[in-house]
Design a protein around this nucleic acid. Structure first.
Lengths: 237, 237
DNA sequence: AGCCGTCTGTGCGCTAGGCCACATAGGTGA
DNA sequence: TCACCTATGTGGCCTAGCGCACAGACGGCT
């Protein structure tokens, strides 16, 4: 993680962009731009956080790793949210891992500043809580989807959720990493991605996925994607 | 749902029991005892709630039902929590269904009262947020467990989570209903429960499950159970 | 060009768990 | 007591997805 002198454009994060003028002004001096590289660990299970992060171009996956090393994603956060909710929910330590899934920038804020502002009980608090509720919906839907839907559908869901949080049609991500996110085998991703390629929805070359036909993805995906998207739009739109 | 004149003993709910004296006193007149019967729907997906519920002896499952009718549980709440978190998280409508999984009593509080008290930003708010974080851990772990673990292990997890929230060793619950909760087939529950019976861990007769040997269940269950339990104890203990 | 490490494709055998079809066994009420 | 309903047990067949093994295939480096 590297730190820049000052924030580029905080309004690139939807949460920050929703703040009313005075709160925004008050928080602005406390934001610092950082950039994350692919695969970087934002925090570990049980870890302590000194900052919360408001991604602008980065995407961060929340996942849980089992004792035997297998892992699965529970949710992901991009420029629509914040990483480190335990800091204002009162938990202190984090109940999961957070890994950078797409390299990019984020704005960080000292835990203390966040907590003080949260305690004011104004718009900022409400935004953070609404985001948390949206995240709960995302995690819930992941649970349901894991139980009931095929790897093909889940890959679509994952691609669409990621695509929504990116400015480009290009994802940098090996099948191995996707497999870890989805909690399936690498080969399982290969065949699912192969089917999507045959359908002309994506192209996949050595860690570079290109979304060719978003429409096709939306036709293949299960209802879980829409439930999550609608809830995010409703709560934060 | 039937309503009684006044609350029996609010401290039967761990959240309420953790309140400091003055806040407890202030809330007490606003609590009303209700009793739920098995299978009753507390709220529907997208529904609106006039009350939040603090279960004392009831257990409520949060689940999501797909368009095709299949369903899966994302978490469950007993006397350690509260049903209706969207009311203080700011969502308004509920992103899931809540169904009574074990008949019993709860204390209800008017949404307005809850929200006003929450806005005070005192201990009550902190408790509710910490509970919400614990719930997030539970839902996350359900997601991971759904992906990575066997029906046997999940049945154990479910039995232990339920048992923790009951005063007796007796659960009233058909295999059909458990299957809906776990998002698996009824026959899958039959064979898993059969194995647990053979091992002497439970007995199962027409909707009456008896926990005979909790130790055995804990040996069979996956690590997910302990992760969730530890987090609840840490945050609310 | 040639080497090598990483990423992707593919095939094969195996198992868990899905769907379907019954068989049986406690209850419950006439 | 018998009819009937609901809950549970069981078996057969099928598919998705796992584990494993290995074969390309691309790209960077010398």
């Amino acid at each position: 993680m590297s730190v820049s002198a000052r924030a580029g454009e905080p309004t690139e994060n939807r949460l920050l962009a929703s703040l009313p003028g005075d709160e925004y002004e008050r928080l602005l001096p406390n934001l610092q731009q950082v950039s994350f590289s692919l695969g970087e660990v934002v925090y570990e299970f049980g870890g302590h956080l000194d900052y919360v992060y408001f991604p602008t171009t980065a995407i961060v996956s929340l996942l849980y790793t089992m004792e035997n090393g297998s892992s699965a994603e529970m949710g992901l956060t991009g420029n629509d949210g914040v990483v480190g909710i335990a800091l204002f929910m009162g938990g202190g330590t984090m109940p999961n891992r957070a890994v950078v899934q797409s390299a990019g920038a984020a704005l960080r804020m000292k835990a203390k500043v966040l907590q003080d502002e949260f305690a004011q009980g104004r718009k900022f608090q409400h935004l953070l809580l609404r985001y948390t509720q949206a995240l709960i919906t995302q995690i819930s839907q992941t649970a349901v989807c894991n139980r009931l839907h095929s790897v093909d559908q889940q890959l679509c869901r994952w691609l669409l959720l990621s695509h929504d949080r990116l400015k480009t049609d290009q994802l940098i991500m090996t099948q191995e990493l996707i497999a870890n996110m989805l909690g399936v085998r690498r080969e399982g991703v290969t065949v699912a991605a192969g089917r999507l390629q045959d359908a002309g929805a994506i192209s996949y070359v050595r860690g570079h996925i290109k979304i060719l036909d978003r429409q096709k993805l939306e036709e293949t995906v299960c209802e879980c994607y829409r439930v999550v998207k609608d809830e995010f739009d409703r709560l934060l739109g």
